[in-house]
Each structure stands twice: as C-alpha cells, then as structure tokens.
Computed example of a mutant assay.
Amino acid sequence: MDNTTIGIIGFLAMLLLMFLGVPIGVAMGIGGFIGFAVVNSWDTLIETLLSAHQE
C-alpha cells in the first residue's frame, strides 16, 4: 500500500472512532500511532517513543 491509501484508511478509521464516541484527541492519537507504525515499522515507533522519553 502506498502512503496515500494508508492515510485515507487512517482518516476513515479516525472518523469511525469519533462516531463511536471516542474523544477527538484520543482518536487522532490512535490513528497517528498506528499510521506511523504502518508506514515505518513497529520497532521504529517503539524506539521513537523510548528516545522521546529519555530526553
């Protein structure tokens, strides 16, 4: 999948979460984390989170 398709799927999933009553910030956070992991990798996501915590 290309990045545009991943972005569209993430946006639709975010709208679905908001429709289900999830707060907007939480829905955006979930979409951002999963989208970053799908585009890069789960290992990169975890390394980024850990390095941000250490600074």
Rank of each mutant, 00 (worst) to 15 (best):
residue 19 F to G: 03
residue 14 M to T: 15
residue 49 L to M: 14
residue 13 A to L: 11
residue 44 T to G: 10
residue 33 F to N: 00
residue 7 G to A: 05
residue 19 F to W: 13
residue 30 I to H: 01
residue 36 F to D: 03
residue 15 L to D: 10
residue 24 I to H: 13
residue 42 W to K: 00
residue 4 T to D: 13
residue 51 S to T: 15
residue 31 G to R: 05
residue 37 A to F: 10
residue 55 E to C: 02
residue 41 S to K: 02
residue 47 E to K: 15
residue 33 F to V: 14
residue 26 V to A: 01
residue 19 F to E: 08
residue 13 A to M: 10
residue 25 G to R: 07
residue 31 G to I: 09
residue 47 E to Y: 12
residue 17 L to F: 15
residue 34 I to Y: 00
residue 20 L to H: 03
residue 16 L to M: 09
residue 5 T to Q: 12
residue 40 N to P: 07
residue 33 F to D: 03
residue 29 G to S: 06
residue 22 V to W: 05
residue 34 I to G: 02
residue 4 T to V: 08
residue 47 E to S: 13
residue 14 M to G: 01
residue 46 I to M: 14
residue 34 I to L: 01
residue 23 P to N: 06
residue 7 G to D: 04
residue 46 I to F: 15
residue 3 N to T: 14
residue 43 D to T: 11
residue 38 V to D: 02
residue 30 I to E: 00
residue 4 T to K: 15
residue 23 P to R: 04
residue 1 M to N: 07
residue 51 S to N: 15
residue 54 Q to R: 10
residue 13 A to N: 04
residue 20 L to W: 12
residue 39 V to I: 15
residue 8 I to N: 01
residue 34 I to Q: 00
residue 19 F to R: 08
residue 49 L to T: 05
residue 8 I to Q: 06
residue 24 I to M: 15
residue 47 E to Q: 15
residue 2 D to M: 04
residue 48 T to I: 04
residue 8 I to L: 10
residue 28 M to K: 07
residue 14 M to R: 08
residue 16 L to C: 07
residue 48 T to D: 12
residue 19 F to L: 13
residue 54 Q to I: 13
residue 48 T to Y: 11
residue 8 I to V: 13
residue 30 I to W: 00
residue 51 S to V: 15
residue 27 A to C: 00
residue 19 F to K: 10
residue 45 L to Y: 09
residue 48 T to G: 07
residue 47 E to R: 14
residue 9 I to H: 02
residue 31 G to N: 01
residue 15 L to N: 09
residue 54 Q to H: 09
residue 20 L to A: 07
residue 23 P to Q: 05
residue 45 L to R: 00
residue 6 I to M: 05
residue 52 A to K: 08
residue 22 V to K: 01
residue 5 T to K: 11
residue 1 M to S: 08
residue 37 A to Q: 00
residue 49 L to I: 13
residue 48 T to C: 07
residue 11 F to A: 14
residue 30 I to G: 03
residue 42 W to H: 03
residue 33 F to G: 04
residue 16 L to Y: 10
residue 49 L to Q: 06
residue 11 F to S: 13
residue 44 T to Q: 12
residue 47 E to W: 13
residue 34 I to K: 00
residue 14 M to H: 02
residue 49 L to D: 11
residue 29 G to N: 04
residue 11 F to Q: 13
residue 47 E to I: 12
residue 31 G to L: 04
residue 15 L to P: 01
residue 7 G to C: 06
residue 22 V to Q: 04
residue 10 G to S: 12
residue 9 I to N: 01
residue 13 A to T: 08
residue 51 S to H: 10
residue 3 N to H: 13
residue 50 L to F: 08
residue 44 T to I: 14
residue 13 A to W: 07
residue 32 G to L: 10
residue 10 G to N: 05
residue 16 L to Q: 01
residue 4 T to R: 15
residue 7 G to T: 07
residue 43 D to W: 08
residue 48 T to L: 13
residue 42 W to D: 05
